[in-house]
Simulated assay, not measured.
Amino acid sequence: MSTRETIIEQADYLIRDKGYNAFSYYDLSKAIGIKNASIHYHFPSKSDLGIAVVQKHLQGLAELRQEKKDLSPLEQLEAFFSIYTKAQSNQKICLVGALATDFHTIEENVQTHLKVLADQVLNWVTEILVLGQQQGVFHFSIEPRTKAMLIISNMLAIVQLIRLTQIEDFERVKAAIIFELTNPQ
C-alpha cells in the first residue's frame, strides 16, 4: 500500500472512530509513523483528505454495485447490508453516518462529495426495492425511495445503537427489514 493509500485508510478509520473534527494530521502522523509534512504533501488540506476518503467509499460502492448487479433483489439487499456488517464487525460506524454528524462543521467541498455518496447509496437501495417489487419478491405500499430511506436510516442507526445495546440487535434489525419486505402485508 502506498503512503497516500495508508493515509486515506487511517483517516477513514479515525473519522469513523472519533469523527471528522476530532482528529488531526498529528493524530495521523502518530498512527502511521510519518511526519506531518508527508501528510501535507499528499493532502495539503484536511478537506482534500476528507474528499479522498469519501471518494474511496464511492469507488467501493460502485464496485460492489457492479459486482452484485446480476443477483436477485434479496441478494443485492444483503450486499447493501454487508457495508454495515463490515463496519459493525470492525466496531465502527459507516462513513455517511460519521460525516453526517459533523455535516455543518465540515468544509463545503467535503459536504458536496458526501451528498454524492449518500445519493448513490439511496439510488442503489431504491433500485433494489423497485426491482424486488417488480419481481414480486418485496412487498411494501409506500414509495420505493421513502422505503429506501427507512431502510438506510435503520442501518445507519443500528451500527451506532449497538454500542449501547446488544450486538444481537444488529442481526435482529436486518432480519426484521427482510421479513417486512418479503411478507405480503
Rank of each mutant, 00 (worst) to 15 (best):
I162S: 00
E67N: 11
P184A: 11
S38N: 14
E9M: 09
S153K: 11
L117C: 00
T182A: 09
E180V: 00
Q134G: 05
Q135A: 05
L58T: 10
L95G: 04
A79T: 00
K35M: 04
L14N: 02
D169C: 00
D169N: 13
K30G: 04
A100W: 11
E168F: 05
V96G: 01
L99E: 04
L129F: 09
L99T: 02
A175V: 00
G97P: 01
I158A: 03
A87L: 08
V53L: 05
V96A: 15
T146D: 07
D169H: 10
G33A: 08
R65P: 07
I167A: 13
F81D: 07
K69F: 07
L74I: 03
R65Q: 15
A22K: 15
Y20I: 03
L181Q: 06
E78R: 15
Q185E: 14
L77I: 09
Y84H: 14
E75P: 02
V159L: 05
Y13F: 15
L14K: 03
T85Q: 14
I177D: 06
H40I: 12
V96D: 02
Q10M: 14
A11M: 00
L156Q: 13
I51T: 07
Q166L: 13
T6C: 08
I152A: 10
Q135C: 03
D119F: 10
Q160P: 00
S153V: 02
Q134V: 07
T165K: 06
D119L: 10
I152Q: 12
F179T: 12
I106R: 01
E127G: 02
A148V: 07
D169R: 01
A98G: 08
A98H: 07
W124E: 05
I152V: 13
A175L: 03
Q135S: 08
I83G: 02
I142M: 13
V137L: 03
Q59A: 11
V121T: 03
L122R: 09
S38F: 00
H104D: 13
A176P: 01
N90C: 06
G132K: 10
S45N: 08
L181M: 02
T146N: 07
I7M: 05
G97E: 09
D102H: 12
M149L: 13
L129R: 00
E5P: 01
A11K: 05
L77W: 10
K18L: 14
Q135K: 13
K115C: 14
D17F: 06
R163N: 13
D70S: 14
